[in-house]
Amino acid sequence: MAVVYFGALALLLVSAFWYLDPATNTIVRSLSFKNFADLIGQPVFRTIVLRTLVVAVAVTIVDGIIAFPIAYYMARVAGPRVRAALFMAVLLPLWASYLVRVYAWSVILSENGFLSSVLNLIGLGGLSSVFGVSDVSMTVVFCYLWLPYMILPLYAGLERIPQSFFDASADLGAGAATTFRRVVLPLALPALVAGSIFTFSLTLGDYITPQLTSNSRFIGTSIAESVGVAGNVPFAAALSLVPIAIIAVYVLVARRLGAFEAL
């Protein structure tokens, strides 16, 4: 199994340095940096990489902000029964089929669908055009998909803060805002970073959600098209090194911030 997997992966990495001969449409197995030159030289790929990165960062930030109140409520306010119920409620959508959840959103966001109906009802019908098939829609759907991955580590991280820290902060005269900024946030940071590994890397590698909810292409879309449509495996291989490199850097930084202990 390991041989199959690593053999496949190694073959892929090597093939990034081969190239497709456009004249004969065959793969030439000799060392070349043509794919990488194409990748850097063509502005379309710069746009795609940049778009993927921006959406992944936006999803991570939005999920971090949305996840904080509920994680805090679960960890420090709710009683044991409510906490257990909330834990299940957050976990359950993760088991529901990924594709079904994306599909549900494509139905909700469609023309004359649930969202435009609700927006019309509250007199914001003009906003419908922002959603529909767009990058905004895609970002919303990503936030929805990966939100539990942010809530669960954050909840665990907040639960670990000893009550005495809150008491000490209050005794020293700090208000709720100061305690949050000087005590809660620094102690929850590793958990926040741990959650962000999921939200960031899952968004970065996806291409089904962009395909179903927007007209834009992601890095993953281009990789899939290079193999499926163009039959240009070497170029797909070179392209796939981009998310691998970005995620590797991200994980290394996350490790330095103590995210691995928070998982």
């Binding site: 073959l11 797909a236 796939s240």
Partner: peptide, 8 residues
């Protein structure tokens, strides 16, 4: 990313 495993 799943797509990397997939094309490999």
């Amino acid at each position: 990313p799943g797509i990397v495993t997939a094309i490999a």
